[in-house]
Design a protein around this nucleic acid. Sequence first.
DNA 1: AGCAATGATGCACAGGTGGTCAAGCTGGTG
DNA 2: CACCAGCTTGACCACCTGTGCATCATTGCT
Lengths: 349, 349
Amino acid sequence: MMHRWSSWCRQVPSVVEPKARAFVSAQQVAERAGVSRSAVSRTFTAGASVSDATRRKVLRAAEELGYHVNHLARGLIHDESGIVSLLVAEMATPFQSAMLAALTRRLQAADRVALVIDTSGGVDGVEAALRRSLNYRAGASVVLSGAPSASLVAACVNSGQRVVLINRDDPIAGPAQVSVDNAAAAREALHMLDRCGCRRVALVSSTAGTPSIVTREQAFTAAAAERGIACTVVRAGPTGYAAGFDAGRSVLSGSVRPDAAFCVTDLLACGFMDAATRAFGLAIPDELCVIGFDDIEQAGWAAYDLTTFRQPVDEMAGHIMALLTAPEPDGTVRRFHATPVWRGSVRPR
Amino acid sequence: MMHRWSSWCRQVPSVVEPKARAFVSAQQVAERAGVSRSAVSRTFTAGASVSDATRRKVLRAAEELGYHVNHLARGLIHDESGIVSLLVAEMATPFQSAMLAALTRRLQAADRVALVIDTSGGVDGVEAALRRSLNYRAGASVVLSGAPSASLVAACVNSGQRVVLINRDDPIAGPAQVSVDNAAAAREALHMLDRCGCRRVALVSSTAGTPSIVTREQAFTAAAAERGIACTVVRAGPTGYAAGFDAGRSVLSGSVRPDAAFCVTDLLACGFMDAATRAFGLAIPDELCVIGFDDIEQAGWAAYDLTTFRQPVDEMAGHIMALLTAPEPDGTVRRFHATPVWRGSVRPR
DNA sequence: AGCAATGATGCACAGGTGGTCAAGCTGGTG
DNA sequence: CACCAGCTTGACCACCTGTGCATCATTGCT
């Protein structure tokens, strides 16, 4: 910048020129190419009518000057910037980062761009994030985690934004929702454990009352009660490895040990398994069966070899893209099936 | 586009009404509040001069209408949108997602916003990503992975963008660089292994020739040669768990087994350790010492308990922010020290 | 009371782009 | 050669906000 400026000064010694703008504008390209600015605009607008000679001149001048169309100004007119904001807390988590990656890739393929907003800091985190999304005239907001207030969601929808909520099981009207059939999967988890003879089951959860986690909890305990299987619930902290480890340490130290555990998250399951094998020397799955949820990458690692339920991240991302590009906004709830992935942490049948 | 047009036609049959804009503009707020649009603008501009009564009227009208300042138009004037683009490949990787999270959080704290761009697809991926960054008039670009061509970096710098390259050990002039002292760490890794009596060392790397990985390789093998320690190099695929596992399977099946391994990445180390313990029943660290690099979260998990070198992600993010907000751009290379984190995968002394 | 100083307000323009419309140009046909 | 059709072009406006400048009200001081 400094350099630019000084060289510029040398070129134009003493004129008033208020500001040295760094970005190249279409006007400058037009002057260099010897055409009107409209021609430049048309050259970069799909479907516009430009002669081949003009287009070549323009492209050449643009290349030489380093011109790039200003999407901000373009969005100013179209009332949509091509930006889609992704609201996420704990984005370093394996599951969230996988979802983020899938969405980002697909957005780019559709000539859109992902604005990632961290919604840590509870409710106002999400509120502030949604406001930012509006500030940048994002065409859509995808809420990966957190609970925006209904009024703010309404504000987004009123502004013409598409809003998609992921994995919130408490349906609020208005935005589209993409979720996973948590209840069915949790029930199936219990049945799987039941079928291989487990009688004393632990439900490993977290203190974060995310709706999808609560749903898994409730469905699992209900299914256990229905089948007459004892079920103890452990929550040792916020969702994560440490909470799983601590939960394992506390629930496995009792006199009557559970012979199976359903962890509402793979991260919890990893911590739980490590506690079981390292701190108590238990053999999995012989002495203890474990089932997780999400199918994060680590679940497939040999150290865990965790039987779990796969959230179809890529299909979900695809459906979200369909929602964003659909002609009409759509307030329906789409629920994907979480398929069990059989690995070695549960005894075969 | 096509759709846009047809729906537009249907919406507005014959009247002139050009478009039903969804976002609220400052003009509408001004009308409702009974003031001029300038007053609205000044109300939302820090340090502008507005009377308290006017401000209250404006804020109230804005609240009622759901007005949000259009950062696109604002950026149009200032020639900078407040957007910082983060270019990253493999963003679901633990290390990259941690860096992404740290940067995003800090950017938000500084009232900026993160545009995440996936640079998968090799060199043109990065090129296209940088172009996008220019399209959105990002004030800065942070390249977390990938090798942009020098000419495109120059284009960004010429446009007034700050460019920061992370963990590229091949210094190209112009942009600021933030890196880690890979060579020193790799040398220290060898010394650590040497000091606990390891004589046959494996270097587990990947087929992706990332500059920082190459540096670690070279420094490690050079140090081994210097101390007269045998070192075999294994590369079983692109950086990741699977490549580490495969590398372990191939290098540990030989007749002369290495008694130590330096994995240039924690992910490789996890795979390598799993191969060693699961496929060969080796005891770590008694029969095999392992050192990793990055200190991703999984390195601290009990299943691995991996001695590794910590990349100070948060400090690096802080320094990057300082680079972005500094008054003058800065083309220097800042090299952080990668500190060893002693855990259980290496025999004590 | 008169004057100066301070502060608030509105007007008009800039900033880069897309779209509309009338006019110019090219080429083909009678 | 005249005429028409269709493509290309350039001028102009709209989009939304920040800001310099002039105007006006208010207040404090002499």
